[in-house]
Design a protein around this nucleic acid. Structure first.
Lengths: 194, 194
DNA sequence: CAGTCTCCATACTTGCGCGTATGGTTACTG
DNA sequence: CAGTAACCATACGCGCAAGTATGGAGACTG
């Protein structure tokens, strides 16, 4: 009885989507390893027998869940941020969204931590390329020459993912809301000079 | 026969230190999960029977190996960098060392990825605190007010660990040596203004 | 209301990696 | 050169989570 033997909410019937949703939840808080079928079944109030009707294997669920997340991310984060023209605002928005929209970033952090898994490796690569391109374009628009834009984008992105890694899960003296905002402001000020 | 069933170099006898050394090697390249006793035994040219003479459990080996690494890190990286007074030079040295001294940083990256493991969690916390303090002190010496120094240090450190995470293992369009140097220079220029 | 399709439970089997038990071999000491 | 201690091999037990086999209960269709 370590932690999450809790819920067991018995909705009537389940669909594949329900499993994917539940998988994303535990993925966000427990990492890839925590996505286990028997455990998931318990939190959904059913048993393995149910799972293997909807999915052929655990990997299939993982892939489906991650694909769903990537799709939502493409729409919400990218689609929304991409419309902001000012790179300063764009970067601010990206970092601000780490505090709200926690779920999505938690999943990303979990995936980062399991980047050696053959299933998530290509996902991380795609996401990284995409976001890096987004940042690079932003800096280029802001007047940076291509080379500098690439470097600055990489710096911003590594700072972003390093931040996720060092905060969301463990250690690092916790920041309160005010300190967090001050930090974000500092990052913007440092990485997006006038 | 996935990958590393190779070596099997039969030195005469083995000591606990040999096992710790080998553990660090596979830890650096395969992560914490790759530190498996039977696998390690094969690469050392022996069997499990040998291992359990030197160590009571796998966790014990892991702890010993990580302790050894942390000790070496304390001496080499910190001890050496700490003597550099100019923070600009100190930061440059820290980032430069990511290319040389690969082993140590690879281990750190592997530990970062397994930061949920009860054995490495306190290690990461210690290391993070220590390095963050190092950077904070450097920025403070350089004339930053305490609050800004903390923020800048955090930014530099997250950029550092994010860089490790996104490069050393997987994805991210590989940088050649020249590009890498240019990037480092850009980071220094950006994070350590005159 | 008989048949079937969907969803789920129960009881297995299987693979993998840790740990144990026990005996063998080399090295070292008196 | 016995005898003991350090080091290692072989063979087993065991737990855990994935995957399988099979049958049962509710819903929907003719």
């Amino acid at each position: 009885m370590t932690s999450a033997e809790t819920k067991a909410e018995p909705r009537g019937r389940l669909s594949a989507t329900d499993w994917e949703q539940a998988a994303l939840d535990v993925l966000a808080h427990g990492g890839v390893a925590a996505v286990a079928v028997e455990s998931l079944a318990r939190t959904l109030g059913v048993t393995k027998g149910s799972f293997y009707w909807h999915f052929p294997t655990r990997e299939a669920l993982l892939k489906a869940a991650i694909d769903r997340w990537e799709q939502r991310d493409e729409d919400q984060v990218i689609g929304h941020v991409e419309r902001i023209v000012d790179p300063r605002e764009r970067l601010r928005e990206l970092f601000q969204r780490v505090s709200r929209e926690v779920q999505s970033h938690l999943v990303y952090a979990a995936l980062l931590q399991a980047s050696d898994h053959p299933l998530v490796q290509p996902v991380i690569e795609r996401i990284s390329k995409r976001r890096l391109a987004l940042l690079t374009a932003a800096y280029a628009e802001a007047g940076f020459d291509p080379r500098t834009a690439r470097h600055r984008a990489r710096l911003a992105y590594t700072a972003y993912s390093g931040f996720l890694q060092l905060n969301q899960r463990h250690g690092m003296p916790r920041m309160d809301q005010e300190e967090y905002q001050a930090y974000i402001d500092h990052v913007i000020e440092t990485l997006v000079p006038a």
